[in-house]
Simulated assay, not measured.
Amino acid sequence: MTTGQEVDDLSPLEEQIKAVMRSIYDPEIPVPIWDLGLIYGWTIQGAGEDQGSDVTVQMTLTAPNCPAAETLPVEVEQGVNALEGVRHVVIDLVFIPTYSMEMMSDEARLTLGFM
């Protein structure tokens, strides 16, 4: 599994997945979900070059009762599913480990005034 912290050696598809995550914003916080630390990782299973790959994205929300619980997972699924080479996307919404502000990037902390 590739995690949000492992960004040095990404495949072209993983770079595209990361770009999708950087383009989706939490509706209540003006920061991409990637920088908020809501993406815990993903797995890619190849189904053959012509058929595309299956992608499972492991993500969380800032809180289990987050108002964006209905929209953010759908946005992630649709964004990744639109990538060339992706056959099927599954969103694995998890709450362990529990989300904390330490998961935010320095950029997100700066944007939100925590630095």
Rank of each mutant, 00 (worst) to 15 (best):
M1N: 06
M1F: 04
M1C: 05
T2Y: 07
T3Y: 02
G4S: 10
G4H: 05
Q5G: 02
E6P: 02
E6Q: 14
P12F: 03
E15K: 15
E15P: 07
Q16P: 01
K18Q: 14
K18Y: 03
M21D: 04
Y25I: 09
D26K: 10
E28M: 11
I29M: 09
P30N: 12
P30F: 11
V31W: 02
I33D: 12
I33F: 11
W34E: 12
D35K: 05
L36H: 08
G37A: 11
L38T: 11
I39W: 03
I39K: 10
Y40F: 14
T43Y: 07
I44H: 07
G46W: 13
E49A: 15
E49F: 12
D50Q: 14
D50G: 09
Q51S: 13
Q51P: 00
D54W: 07
V55W: 03
T56F: 03
T56Q: 09
T56V: 15
T60R: 08
T62A: 13
A63S: 15
A63V: 06
N65H: 15
A69I: 09
L72G: 05
L72K: 09
P73Y: 10
P73G: 07
E75I: 05
E77K: 15
E77A: 15
Q78E: 15
G79V: 07
N81P: 00
A82M: 01
V86F: 03
V86G: 02
V89K: 10
I91D: 00
D92F: 08
L93Y: 04
V94H: 00
F95K: 02
I96R: 01
T98H: 11
T98E: 15
Y99N: 06
S100C: 01
M104G: 05
E107C: 01
R109I: 05
R109H: 04
L110P: 00
L110N: 04
L112W: 02
G113V: 04
